[in-house]
Design a protein around this nucleic acid. Structure first.
Lengths: 343, 343
DNA sequence: ATTAGCACTCATGTAAGAGGAGTGCTAACA
DNA sequence: TGTTAGCACTCCTCTTACATGAGTGCTAAT
């Protein structure tokens, strides 16, 4: 266990390093107010903290830097979310200023504002559309061979897709089919559409439609489209200003990973409810060894709907970022709940 | 005027510098095959070329580097578009492999493939939707207060927007209005919709609709939405691999400018038909002083529809990039023409 | 238990010098 | 008159050496 004094020293080291990005030495610590110990005493304590793995040296005679374990302890036991300033709050509130709620825009603005407020990179995952309920299907022929299918959900989300019309189909049949689909599939969550069309709609189609086979096939194909929520990023270039990324190769790897979206996506989509912090090597990704990722979810009711996240250096302002994420996730939850309950 | 020998030397300097990124010295030039001159002679010629402004030194005793004027001459008079390899061609063709033409996807894939083939950053501007003709308007109520308006064009493009329903409107009136709009506005280019609604539709609405005023206002508002084509980027991180951008500050400025989209957008949207090359300071933008931008348009018939572009260092493989852009812009034109004439 | 003192380590910055690639100029040559 | 060899000079780059300073660990005194 750590003594009170060790806790104090660890805390000051982390705080100081987060601020300055410079390894913290015993002498500079001893001169801090709130600490009335000689540098020698601090050196002894630091040696102990190092032995326990909370801090590290960058070379034999350098000051100390928090280790992953150190940051972890700091985040788990010493940190309280920063209270936001009035200024921060008003900026976040401005996200929701416009009256008509176009959700994608809110998400996008959230990402951009979050990165502005933190100077890190922000990532926002839109609300799970696949759980939205179908409101209306519309088929609009574009020319003889192709048509556009449009799906509108109860939250006002619109998906659309072009497709080839089955050969020799007659317009009346399409209309009939669409009517049947709307009647039967109204209120069904998007992810269950494909199921339902076989179980409930197929029979009806068979009764009313000539070109039953190709029609069913076409629509089943349409409904099979995977609905993956888009990721929105903000401040991708902010990382370039961090002193730990002076090395262009590191930056390149990192930026390529971000642009790839693959790794980020897998993390962001599969995280559990609440706020989570992944520090450095905890990310299980070489490229992320010097980065931390903080994720927060937003929900409606009990159900997690989407995620907002901040990616920054391990030397990140955890307190501030967690404070901001907490606040924004609550606001998003509130807005969404209102939107979803309005139906 | 430049003598043949000066032309030769200029060409070799540009080619060599594009390949190696190293200033070219007289001695290494004299050893090139195809050149049987002593280094002293070449030094004399180089001095002349420098005096005329085609090449520069980085310091008093360095080799020569092409100036903007030098690149300009090279591009205008010495360059023929590279013939593509079979491999290049098949990769470009793969963009159009999928049968059903979802245009946004084609654009996106074009950007990504273009950046892969060149290792530079690619920028693609989608076809001008504002000239597409309206095929169908659809209004779908989401809840009591809001509805989604959906616009489908003759090319299968879909725009949608949420809006507040006017207070105390009755459903029948909305339906009637939509019918009138569809009847009257079918085939009208999107950019002219706002005009037409006042000139032709307003009168009809007045006759048939109770809530004439608020209805007209609502729809006019909807149709006023600015339809700006999206920009798609590919290989934003490729710049990080260019040796001229070893400096992190330069890279940051450049990346921020790209992410901003403002400057790029203004250039890309306003360029004339055909292929254009902007070299270094010709871009009138400090940040772009060491970059070149090559743009190409694609069209249907005589009309320019969109733009594809490559952003790279001034030391860019002009010949290859122009070859690729030419080829791709022709292919895009072909596909689009087919798509647009199918109606 | 705390601290003063000291020897030691290592990153950083500066200065000096060697090496090398390149230039401009001059004079000789064809 | 155009071409080339030769040479002095410039300036970048790399290495080495050295001084400085921040920081450490350890020991002994308080």
């Amino acid at each position: 266990m750590l003594t009170d004094r060790q806790l104090l020293i660890l805390q000051v080291i982390v705080d100081d390093f987060i601020r300055s990005a410079q390894p913290v030495g015993s002498r500079s610590l001893s001169k801090k107010e709130g600490i009335s110990l000689s540098s020698a005493t601090i050196r002894n304590e630091m040696a102990d903290l190092e032995e326990m793995g909370y801090i590290e040296k960058t070379h034999t005679s350098s000051g100390r830097v928090p280790s992953v374990k150190g940051y972890r302890y700091y985040v788990d036991h010493m940190l309280s979310p920063q209270r936001l300033t009035q200024h921060d709050i008003s900026i976040i509130k401005s996200i929701f200023a416009e009256k008509i709620v176009e959700f994608e825009k809110i998400i996008q603005r959230s990402a951009s504002i979050l990165s502005d407020l933190t100077n890190y990179t922000s990532i926002v995952l839109g609300p799970a559309v696949s759980e939205n309920k179908l409101k209306r299907i519309q088929i609009i022929p574009v020319n003889k061979e192709t048509a556009v299918a449009i799906f509108v959900t109860d939250t006002g989300h619109v998906e659309h897709k072009m497709f080839s019309l089955p050969a020799s189909v007659n317009p009346g049949d399409i209309e009939k089919t669409v009517n049947i689909l709307n009647e039967r599939l109204n209120g069904v969550p998007l992810e269950e559409l494909n199921d339902k069309i076989y179980k409930e709609v197929a029979v009806l189609l068979k009764q009313h439609i000539q070109n039953y086979d190709s029609m069913l096939h076409t629509f089943a194909q349409l409904l099979k489209m995977p609905i993956t929520e888009k990721l929105f990023f903000g401040g991708k270039t902010n990382m370039l200003s961090q002193p730990e990324f002076h090395d262009i190769d590191k930056i390149r790897d990192l930026m390529m990973m971000i642009d790839q979206e693959e790794w980020i996506s897998s993390i962001i989509r599969n995280n559990a409810k609440g706020i989570h912090v992944r520090i450095g090597s905890e990310n299980n990704n070489k490229i992320m060894d010097e980065c931390s990722l903080i994720t927060a979810t937003y929900s409606v009711g009990e159900e997690k709907l989407g995620t907002i996240a901040i990616l920054g250096p391990t030397r990140m302002e955890y307190s501030r970022v967690i404070g901001l994420l907490q606040f924004l996730s609550r606001d998003l939850t509130a807005v969404l709940t209102k939107l979803y309950q309005n139906n």
